[in-house]
Write a protein that binds this DNA or RNA. Structure first.
Lengths: 341, 341
DNA sequence: CTGAAAGCGCTTACAG
DNA sequence: CTGAAAGCGCTTACAG
């Protein structure tokens, strides 16, 4: 038994295949009675059109291209895309593409692989901007938006990121307002641009408040739990310990807390800790972590919205979007013990 | 300028459209020279087939139907599906479907919405088994697999869940081995079947070890942080406090730890706590949480694998799959203070 | 409101 | 190895 075609449906309903086509597509000129007849026949046969329409129109679709989907970052951006897509009737197809899998294909095959006929756009996530996708897509006229790319993108590509500098500044200002003066920073790897912006936010807050940046309070880190842990241990060996720590990621903040607590240093009574990200679960840790929220889900939503607008003919869409980060004050920060200077 | 068709490509390459078609589809009888010519023309024009082939064959696709994608549970199952799909060249299309959005459509429209012509299968996630999807899909011959459904599924549906009973038993046995005898349990809402299995695992471990179940040590909970927090506070008011707690979810375990720590009760020195789930981030909390891991990513992977096998004609696939949970011992559990009874 | 006819974009025997 | 011809599943003027 082969798959039923429109002809089979028409036959079963006792109408021509043209009429069946129109009935199924909801054209108004069809009698209600006929439409019901055809719909029933289609349903009974389990008919499914093989080809949406003669000109290939189908449910619109957005491809998400990513190197990896292991981080909660990627996964939550994806979640935003799915939510917004479901609302708008746009399908989201996530694909993990390694450099090696790409190389195994001829350019034409590769293009065909990732460009379905009905793609209305492509979202690049944590994806090098050197990516050949950009050229190919530009050439086809398929719009692309890149989310928080590590490296700068071609001028023509729309990018969505978040206000890392402002976030770093807000975190530092929060600690200053609590009366802290010796505020350590746990840095990330230098190749990660958003982290660099956060660091500059820290510097700016200090400078604006009339303080100098003490470079000995900037500790090396690598965004991992262990590197935060180590940095905190080094702080504890200092003669004049910092009273507060701003870690450029939540993992490092949690690592620092782990180190402090294991040495009997209490958070936030003895030292305040702020993270960056608002990673899942940090609101449940003890103490509940004060951190800078990144609007990951919104970034995904906006990506879809932007692509939909572009498909709708919106020309002047802003090309560098920065969504707001916001400080979430929880229980890992408190007033400095000895008051302000 | 309208979208280029195969004809345009053929014309530009100076061959017939039949030859162009064959060249692009990688048929062997085409001269390499010709193939290159056609490929170049296709690339220059930005050609994309509108319709994959005359018989509608395309990249296979699996639809994920879910009520909500807000929990890490859903999101990680999805991640497994995407990873496995990418490896096998199967696209995964996640759709969020509310009951109301479904009701707005006629049955035929609705079927057409969620059954693309090229679906090779459907995955149901956190999705009521009363779902009309099951009937429709069965009728179409589209295979369905349901992941950890709250309510039982039709007999014919393949389900994937995890060994909740064994997990609950392992968690409790771990505490018994550490010498704990008064082991409290923080229960979940009774309508959640997997939770009920975990509870029975707790009972079984106790019974097997020769102990009676003290019903006064079973505390009401609702899977939330707050309910875990409250349960712990009630424990602290008992004359003969439990020395260990098994919470049916990580959120409740973390809530309990929050309550203990805020009252100066140390974890694990004064009380041991085990959770269930291995939620993201619980390995970074202080203390790092001992918990029962659920193989969420693997569940997604296996769902895709099962569907692919089914499409490949595998008939005798097991219909009730239970993937193994495993206890992960971290830092929130320790030997009972006063030794065994 | 219906259906015969033309057409769309594509693929695949088949003849050369 | 190539292309003219037939065919596929579908849609859409257009005549009735």
């Amino acid at each position: 038994m082969t798959r039923p075609t429109l002809k089979d449906v028409a036959q079963r309903a006792g109408v021509s295949h043209a009429t069946a086509s129109k009935a199924l597509n909801g054209r108004t000129e069809i009698a209600e009675e006929t439409r019901a007849l055809v719909a029933r026949a289609a349903s009974e046969l389990g008919y499914l059109p093989r080809r949406a329409s003669a000109d290939g129109r189908d449910r619109p679709l957005v491809t998400l291209l990513t190197d990896s989907i292991e981080s909660y970052y990627s996964v939550e951006v994806l979640r935003g895309m799915i939510e917004e897509g479901s609302r708008r009737g746009i399908d989201v197809v996530p694909r993990i593409e390694s450099r090696s899998s790409r190389r195994a294909l001829s350019p034409w095959q590769w293009e065909r692989e990732f460009l379905r006929p009905d793609v209305m756009g492509i979202v690049l996530l944590v994806y090098g901007a050197q990516s050949p996708v950009l050229e190919v897509a530009a050439h086809r006229g398929v719009p692309v938006v890149a989310i928080d790319p590590y490296v700068g993108c071609r001028d023509a590509t729309t990018t969505i990121s978040s206000t890392n500098w402002e976030g770093g500044k807000a975190a530092t200002e929060h600690l200053l307002e609590l009366g802290h003066r010796r505020i350590a920073l746990i840095n990330g790897t230098p190749d990660f641009l958003p982290g660099n912006e956060r660091l500059h936010g820290y510097r700016a807050a200090l400078l604006d408040a009339g303080f100098e940046v003490d470079e000995s309070l900037i500790f090396e880190g690598a965004y991992t739990y262990g590197s935060g842990f180590d940095a905190a241990e080094r702080m504890l060996e200092m003669p004049d310990r910092p009273t507060a720590v701003f870690a450029l990621s939540d993992r490092m903040a949690l690592g620092a807390i782990g180190a402090f607590v294991s040495r009997g240093v209490r958070v936030p009574e003895d030292v305040s800790v702020v993270g960056f990200d608002n990673a899942p679960g940090v609101d449940l840790a003890t103490p509940r972590l004060t951190t800078v929220n990144q609007p990951r889900v919104d970034m995904g939503r906006i990506a879809i919205k932007t692509l939909a607008d572009l498909a709708g003919g919106a020309a002047g869409v802003s090309e560098r979007m920065k969504l707001s980060t916001n400080l979430i004050v929880r229980a890992s920060t408190a007033l400095a013990r000895s008051g302000a200077a």
